[in-house]
């Protein structure tokens, strides 16, 4: 099916080291571009350093201060401010990947975050951070005690069941993070593609104004979705970290 071809990576430079496929695909190139753009825009915005921001500094400063207010002041608390660079980096990287995927670039154009492997790696990074902060804050014994909920009636019967549920939910969190982002990006970009390929399917120019108009509306919606999904990924990472580092009460 030719619809799915647009969602598959294709290899640009094949590299295989001891049977491990490390080829440079178009997703990798798009992630490099996203990294470079995040670096450039944030560095240039920060270097201006005006007291009254304007232009690029204004955009970036309002975004960063919004993230800081939501993540640090409302969720993590000022004492965990050292987590802010990590979650803000997640936000900007995912946002730039999402937005770059909307631009049709010949040969390398691809939404890196629509690939489950990319979002899966990000989610695994978040997973290790969450477990790490849990062990660091409470010690190994305190970390393990979090799997046994308190105040459960019928202790002998319910505690094993609750432990199984807690362990499943531990692994369901990064899984749902990865699948949510990938599926959102895949679905949104596929809808634009379907609207545009209606012109080819119907073999008529008469349908073109309608389908291009609908594709434009979906494109505007996708810019919104790109922002929201980047925000949701990073706010959920923040909430998991806050939940793991919170003390027992």
């Amino acid at each position: 099916m030719e619809l799915m071809e647009h969602l598959q990576t294709h290899v640009l430079v094949p590299i295989t080291i001891r049977g491990v496929d490390l080829s440079i695909t178009n997703a990798v190139v798009m992630m490099w571009i996203a990294c470079g753009l995040v670096f450039l825009t944030l560095v240039f915005a920060g270097r201006a350093g005006r007291l009254i921001p304007k232009g690029l500094q204004n955009v970036m400063e309002s975004m960063v201060s919004f993230l800081r207010q939501t993540f640090i002041e409302e969720i993590l608390g000022e004492e965990n401010v050292s987590w802010f660079p990590f979650v803000a980096t997640l936000f900007f990287f995912i946002l730039y990947c999402n937005l770059l995927g909307l631009i049709p670039i010949p040969a390398i154009g691809f939404t890196a975050t629509s690939n489950i492997l990319v979002t899966g790696s990000l989610a695994v990074a978040v997973f290790f951070c969450v477990q790490g902060v849990g062990i660091y804050k409470h010690g190994v014994w305190g970390y393990l005690k979090k799997f046994v909920p308190k105040g459960v009636p019928l202790k002998v019967v319910l505690i094993p069941i609750m432990m199984v549920i807690e362990i499943i939910s531990l692994f369901a969190k990064p899984f749902s993070l990865a699948v949510r982002l990938a599926a959102n990006m895949t679905a949104g970009h596929l809808v634009i593609l379907v609207f545009l390929s209606m012109i080819i399917m119907f073999r008529s120019y008469l349908i073109a104004p309608i389908s291009v108009g609908m594709a434009t509306v979906m494109m505007a919606f996708e810019v919104f979705v790109a922002l929201i999904q980047a925000f949701i990924f990073s706010i959920l990472a923040t909430m998991y970290i806050a939940e793991a580092s919170a003390s027992e009460h």
Partner: peptide, 25 residues
């Protein structure tokens, strides 16, 4: 505060439809 919580809730609700989308794919 309500808006932030609503967007989070929407993300959880929407994820269910997206799981079904993955299954249908």
């Amino acid at each position: 505060l309500l808006r932030t919580t609503m967007i989070l809730g929407i993300a959880f609700v929407e994820a269910l439809a997206l799981y079904a989308l993955v299954i249908s794919f």
